[in-house]
């Protein structure tokens, strides 16, 4: 039993990363409806509970910009010039779609998890045991 939980601890970070990967795009598009620069965005996302590395975020912003989902301007008003990103119209459109997908996924997973935990025997009549023909 102890062995099994150790395996789980090993596997967990990888699975969590997989699960979170796509959500960073969603989070960026949502947060950048208010224009912001990389470092500030990093702080905003962290404050909102979205855990993302700077290593991942900066290249991602570039990619989204290349895809036309973000626009950028260099703000030189302050002594330190900063690159400000903002969600474009296409980005807003994508945000709506991705958010709808996220909601649908959430509902689907919720019903799956709750259904499974409600039934006492996991492989009941709906899932007959497989027989190898």
């Amino acid at each position: 039993m102890a062995q099994r939980s150790a395996d789980l601890e090993d596997a967990l970070p990888g699975h969590l990363q997989e699960l979170r990967r796509g959500t960073v795009v969603l989070a960026c598009l949502a947060a950048l409806r208010q224009p912001g620069y990389g470092y500030a965005l990093l702080g905003d996302l962290e404050a909102a509970g979205i855990d993302v590395d700077a290593n991942t975020l900066y290249p991602l912003l570039r990619r989204l910009e290349r895809q036309g989902l973000l626009t950028s301007t260099w703000n030189t008003d302050e002594p330190r010039p900063r690159k400000f990103y903002a969600t474009s119209d296409a980005g807003r459109e994508l945000l709506t779609r991705l958010h709808a997908e996220w909601t649908a996924l959430d509902a689907a997973l919720r019903s799956l998890v709750e259904h499974a935990s409600a039934s006492t025997t996991p492989s009941s009549s709906t899932h007959p045991p497989r027989t190898d023909a």
Binding site: Y58, W74, R80, P81, R82
Partner: peptide, 14 residues
């Protein structure tokens, strides 16, 4: 050059 300026600003902010 663009990436470099952005990274320098980031490091300075940090």
């Amino acid at each position: 050059r663009d990436v470099e300026a952005e990274l320098r600003a980031t490091v300075a902010d940090m």
